[in-house]
Design a binder for these strands. Structure first.
Lengths: 227, 227
DNA sequence: TGATAATTTGACCGGTTGGTAAAAACATAC
DNA sequence: GTATGTTTTTACCAACCGGTCAAATTATCA
């Protein structure tokens, strides 16, 4: 028989389509799910969870609404899948911050990588920002759990660098916040950045300018050198 | 007769209630409109434009939906009114940046004032952020018009300070972006900030810590002093 | 080929949403 | 009081939205 929804009680998984008989997904499943998630990223990231509609996502994915709902049972299932798979890659750069490396080089490359993510994955950044603005109702646990744990760990690394005199004394948490804020700004507030910069520097060059500026800001600050 | 909607063609104004006969608004109009705007700020700022419903706003304002629609003809009218009145106060601190003042003190106090706004008016900040995330469909013109003009003007001020050796050589536009990003982060990403800081420092003390950190970051950077 | 399972579609449903119509309630001036 | 204008309520609607259902279509493989 076709499909087995209707609360049969089994497979309360998540992104698994009705067809959980042959346990592994076919090529076509894999591909369709990916297309859905890509479309959903587009729609969710610019409208937020409540503002997005399944019809919008379905149309962006080039399929009918019931067809989409065959792969993901609910709108929320799509959203959660997206958010979770994103959170992982989103924290990669911070994970890569190496306690054994050269402090200044490590922070410098962290800033650079975060900025590259804003350039290359602005939708992901905006999705995340949208979720935050709404009070993170879907990922509160991740925030106080894995994310906090990771930040705590890296804050400790930074503190040790401070103790060794490798970087200036400062609050490591607010340092991390500042890096997040300044880099993600170029994805989340892209319209504003482009509007303000105008025709001249609004091209891709703005990311290079930003990188140059941020490296200077974070390491030298604004005070002029007393020559 | 009661009301005059129905496309009579007249008064295509905006926030003006049906009662545009006696040209000035009564005390009760003034008060109700304010209550609506306050409620709308609450709802819009945490759900975005599409995610917010008139019913939600009406309930938060303590009145029925049709009653609310008597003061503002459409959901969009409420939103636009809110956004415009907000944009003005939002740019006040930047307007106050004084070319004649001491450069370092001016920038320092700009950062402080922006941070205070994040602390005291987080809803306004989030409303603005929401609009930006969605590509600023309602205020595109303000962005490329008045806002760009103001930023251009202040960027020129900063450039002159650089020329006089008062602050380090840097891109004034990206400096302004960095100040916006770091300060607004504490309003827009409040959940994340609190989750990461945990019980200990998540109280109001976080704004003082942030202020201290940002002042150091912007003026001294992270490089340790060569004692 | 035919049996079987996977995928897609069109029609539909109950609830919500933005907004309207009309009349009732209230205030005010005379 | 009554006439006039303002504010509020009750009832309502058409469009939309998340999701379901049953049937039709297509892929898979013995």
């Amino acid at each position: 028989m076709a499909g087995d929804r209707g609360g049969t009680g089994g497979s309360e998984g998540m992104a698994v389509p009705r067809a959980a008989k042959t346990q592994r997904r076919t090529r076509i499943q894999e591909e369709k799910e990916e297309r859905i998630l890509d479309a959903a990223l587009e729609v969710f990231s610019s409208n937020g969870f409540r503002g997005a509609t399944i019809d919008q996502i379905a149309e962006a994915a080039g399929m009918s609404k019931p067809n989409l709902l065959y792969y993901f049972r609910t709108k929320e299932a799509i959203y959660r899948t997206l958010l979770e798979s994103m959170l992982f890659t989103w924290l990669e750069p911070l994970k890569a911050l190496d306690a054994e490396g050269d402090p200044e080089a490590e922070i410098r490359s962290y800033i650079r990588r975060k900025l590259e993510m804003s350039r290359d994955f602005p939708r992901e950044s905006r999705l995340f920002a949208n979720e935050m603005l709404q009070g993170a109702p879907h990922i509160e646990d991740d925030l106080t759990g894995p994310l906090k744990a990771l930040v705590d760990e890296k804050a400790e690394v930074i503190r040790s660098w401070i103790k060794n005199g490798k970087i200036a004394r400062c609050d490591p948490y607010h340092l991390i916040f500042a890096i997040w804020a300044t880099t993600q700004h170029y994805a989340d507030f892209d319209v504003q950045v482009c509007a303000v910069l105008g025709e001249n520097r609004a091209g891709e060059g703005r990311f290079e300018d930003a990188a140059r500026f941020l490296e200077q800001l974070f390491f030298e600050g604004l005070r002029p050198k007393k020559a």
